[in-house]
């Protein structure tokens, strides 16, 4: 099992192929539906002006996302009253909902990795080739196990989005993932989709 440290270099990214099992180590962010829409509307498409702490949060996350990794995850977190946060359960959420935003977000931040489940579509695969980057698949539902890889919660932004939708800053060790979309245009999800379509057609013939 290959061990990768965040930030990840372009050479490392290009060396990864679909099917590779790797572990991730370093600092990463969680970000899912609300975060992607907020980044997209405020800082990429600029449909709305930054307000409140928007600009401040943007500057903070920009540094972590440069060469970094974003995790599609809405965790269960303990210590909400004390602020002494601890991840209790933290598996991936379905990534396809971020497809309208992901490619642009990857390009905007020079984001090298997206962690989630279920895979993503053509725009993200193209961004994986161009940036370059990869899609890391975590095991859906394996939430207690994955939470063991989160060694420390370094902070949180946008908690007003709600616990699942906030931006959690994490220190992770040996975070287990499988590369299912690589920077060379391969996607396990496309392969399985095409194969299963043929079988479906024969079952419905």
């Amino acid at each position: 099992m290959q061990k990768l440290t965040i930030p990840i270099s372009d050479d490392h990214i290009r060396s990864l192929k679909v099917g590779d099992s790797v572990t991730l180590n370093g600092t990463m962010l969680t970000g899912r539906d609300a975060v992607h829409k907020w980044i997209f509307d405020t800082f990429i498409e600029k449909k709305r002006a930054p307000e409140g702490d928007d600009q401040e949060v943007y500057e903070a996350i920009k540094q972590i996302l440069e060469g970094g990794v974003i995790y599609h995850c809405g965790p269960v977190v303990a210590g909400l009253d004390s602020g002494d946060y601890k991840f209790v359960a933290a598996g991936p959420t379905t990534s396809t909902r971020e497809e309208p935003y992901q490619a642009r977000v990857m390009q905007h931040f020079n984001l090298k990795g997206v962690i989630g489940k279920g895979g993503m579509a053509g725009n993200t695969l193209a961004a994986c080739r161009d940036v370059p980057g990869v899609y890391f698949h975590a095991i859906g539902g394996a939430a207690t196990l994955i939470a063991q890889s989160v060694k420390e919660v370094l902070g949180v932004h946008k908690l007003d989005f709600g616990v699942p939708e906030a931006i959690w800053v994490l220190q992770v060790e040996e975070f287990p993932v499988v590369v299912t979309m690589d920077s060379h245009g391969s996607s396990i999800h496309d392969e399985v989709d095409q194969k299963s379509k043929k079988i479906l057609d024969s079952l419905l013939a």
Binding site: A89, A143, T144, L145, I146
Partner: peptide, 24 residues
């Protein structure tokens, strides 16, 4: 590998009395 990870998680969640999946 995915199924093995799933089963490990099932055991650990039961032992620690924490959610199997974060989406409860």
């Amino acid at each position: 590998g995915a199924l093995e990870t799933i089963l490990k998680n099932v055991e650990l969640a039961r032992e620690k009395s924490t959610p199997i999946c974060q989406d409860t």
